[in-house]
Simulated assay, not measured.
Amino acid sequence: MQKQESLEYFYLYEPDTKEKYGLRYAIPEDADRISELYIQEYGSNYVNPIIYDQHELEGHIADEDNIWIIGENLQKEELIATSLMELKENYAFSSKTIIRKSYRGKGLGSRFGFRSVKELHDSGVLDNRIKIDSDVRGVQVTAQKLSENSRGIPYGFIPFYNNFGDKRDLNSDYYNPYPTQDEESAYLYFSPLPRLSKNRSNEVYLLDNELIIFFYDYMKHIKRMTKNIMKRDTVYYTKFKQTPEYLEKEDISVSIDLYGSRVKLLGVTDYKVVEFLMDKFKNYRMLIWHIPATLKGVKSMQQVLDNGFIVCGYNLGGFKPRYSDVLVDSVIFVKYLHEKSKNSLKENISCTEMNEPILKHVLKQLS
């Protein structure tokens, strides 16, 4: 997709109030106004401090893999909304749409969100991707409803996922992330795109364990869309001792989030490698491992449950093997690298009706 460098609006809206609104792609010159809107929403505590550095934010907006969209009141020439879609290897990640406080309660958030995603679909930028991913704050039930009204489907809940706090004057390096400040839980959402169903493997291997099976069953029945995606599945509920000693080659990727103080693993590897990584990144808050629903993955599922991980979600087509175009489901496990318990959750976690089973299932593992 070619980044737009003009002020052309792709959507205009005139409600009964006779005000006129427009949506367009942001340009680097919008950085200061976008930053101001984030400050209104988060103060100095947003998870990524890039939002407070105008020069860095300008570069982020100019990057073709970061699609910033803004909404404006055209009469007042006022920026009233912003959203971000980050293009990853085979999916897109959608950040929260922020609406200026004085414009809330008018239905603009859901309208702008829908029109922004429609524009990206029409532009073709999502054609080669399997889904739109997002995470939604556990304390904001309104944001959860907005995601669900925009065809978002919850697939996980991770306690203490976010690490808010003022990071502007803090230093970090590869092994020493930003310190723990204001932790907050999050729900994981996704919106399937056509390539997910087309490329996803219907052979699913799961450890025969109720904590894991719960999430598979939840995903299959939560929405008609996921039921259709999973209706041809052949599921093998496997005992750990039934897995061969040597199966797939190791296929693992490691990513770190300095701001969130999280380490993420995606794929299969020997558990000794994971122990090495947990020691290497011991100053981080948590390790999140997406384990593929394969025979090799079953062995890893048992090992992580034996070593204090909890099951937090089920990601349809969440793993793409290195030498294959077939997408494999993954089960999401979390290990807190410092002591955590249900009693540590100081926030007032909210949930929609759709999220309630996930919330209860995860929290009971912390008790």
Rank of each mutant, 00 (worst) to 15 (best):
F112E: 08
R100L: 10
H55C: 15
N348F: 00
P15S: 14
Y174V: 13
R137N: 10
N149I: 12
K296H: 02
D169K: 00
L170N: 06
R322T: 00
D306F: 11
P28H: 08
L366N: 00
E210R: 14
D257R: 00
E36D: 08
F319M: 03
I98V: 15
S185K: 07
V273C: 01
V254I: 15
I130L: 02
M225I: 13
S147F: 07
N66P: 12
L327P: 12
N176F: 05
R115V: 02
S134N: 04
E119N: 07
L258T: 06
G71M: 09
Y25R: 13
E347R: 09
K364W: 07
F190K: 01
G22N: 11
A31Q: 03
I99A: 05
H55T: 15
F190T: 01
R104E: 08
L207D: 06
Q4M: 04
Q2R: 15
S324K: 13
S150I: 03
R115Y: 00
V268I: 09
Q242S: 15
D208V: 08
D173M: 02
V204L: 00
Y174N: 09
I291C: 03
S44P: 08
L258N: 02
K239S: 05
V235R: 11
E8R: 15
T234R: 14
H361T: 10
Y25W: 11
K76S: 12
G297P: 07
T238H: 10
V254D: 13
K167T: 09
D257H: 06
K272D: 15
F93T: 14
I67Q: 02
V235G: 10
G43W: 07
R100V: 04
K280A: 15
V326I: 13
T269H: 05
Y271H: 02
V334T: 08
Q181C: 03
R33E: 07
V331M: 11
K227R: 10
N228I: 04
E245N: 12
K223V: 05
L366V: 06
F215D: 01
T142S: 15
S350N: 07
A31P: 04
G43A: 02
S253L: 04
L305C: 07
S83K: 11
G105R: 14
Q365G: 04
Q40N: 01
V334L: 03
Q365C: 05
K280Q: 15
F10N: 10
S172Y: 08
E19Y: 02
Q302C: 03
Q140A: 10
I332D: 06
L12M: 15
Q242H: 13
F93I: 04
N66D: 12
V136Q: 01
Y178C: 10
